[in-house]
């Protein structure tokens, strides 16, 4: 399952931050990550503010999208960069301050110690996290139930974007099968079907400072419908053979 050769030494990890108009918080997040000794790459998804300038000022690697492509595509650009630069693992997190940089090490340590392929930061397992609004929690529970029902994977916080991933997962994520328009609970189902070991670990998350993409009534309804549909599609998607199993 996990390459035993990589377990002898601490993993060479990269922190990926997709950013769109995150000038307000991104600098502080980068500084906190650099203090812990992590390499950081920020993917600026064609921000209208000076996100790029701030990223460069704070010494992180910058990848600039020449047009706005969305969160999933920005993440995938980061994965491609990590593979190109031969990193062994990646931690993905938001640049708006919602994900605590202090917990990046926790995710990496869990990935290393538990010898798994993917670690999801669970905001509900840790005291100190912000209280998720009831309707969003209901959506998370629904995805969680569907995931368990269809794959047997028990994940309490399937919408968490605060994750640590190994190289074998990254190689799968850069394929055409990656649902870049809404990588959410659906991608976890594909990971499970691919045979990746997925676990959760407690992390602290703060309330996002930006405007939520799930505001209003119809947007969340549309999003939930899309994810459910995507989960169902994921059940029938023809998957490739894993490279590390050859």
């Amino acid at each position: 399952m996990v390459d035993s050769k990589t377990e002898a030494k601490p993993m060479h990890c990269l922190v990926i931050i997709p950013a769109y108009n995150e000038a307000e918080n991104i600098g502080e997040v980068i500084d906190k990550l650099h203090k812990q000794g992590f390499d950081v790459v920020v993917i600026d998804d064609h921000s209208a503010d000076n996100t790029s300038k701030i990223v460069e000022q704070h010494g992180a690697t910058l990848l600039k999208h020449c047009s706005n492509m969305g969160y999933g595509v920005a993440l995938q650009t980061g994965y491609r960069y990590a593979i190109q630069q031969k990193y062994e693992c990646v931690v993905q997190m938001d640049g708006d301050g919602q994900h605590s940089p202090e917990f990046v090490k926790t995710l990496v340590d869990t990935l290393y110690e538990k010898q798994v392929d993917l670690v999801i930061g669970n905001r509900h397992m840790m005291v100190g996290s912000y209280k998720v609004p009831k309707h969003r929690r209901a959506g998370q529970k629904l995805f969680s139930t569907l995931l368990q029902m269809f794959s047997g994977l028990k994940i309490d916080d399937p919408t968490s974007g605060f994750q640590a991933l190994r190289l074998n997962v990254l190689k799968f994520y850069v394929s055409d099968l990656y649902p870049d328009d809404f990588p959410d609970a659906n991608i976890l189902l594909l990971c499970r079907r691919m045979g990746f070991k997925v676990i959760e670990t407690p992390v602290v998350m703060h309330e996002s400072s930006g405007v939520s993409m799930h505001r209003g009534f119809w947007r969340p309804v549309f999003y939930v419908t899309l994810i459910i549909f995507s989960i169902l599609v994921g059940l029938f998607t023809k998957l490739p053979k894993r490279e590390d199993e050859n």
Binding site: L62, L63, K64, H65, C66, M69, V73, Q76, T77, R80
Partner: peptide, 16 residues
């Protein structure tokens, strides 16, 4: 869209 995505990603990586 897929072609545009590949171009945007490749451009970002090459620029860096």
């Amino acid at each position: 869209f897929n072609q545009r995505k590949a171009t945007v990603q490749q451009t970002a990586l090459l620029e860096e």
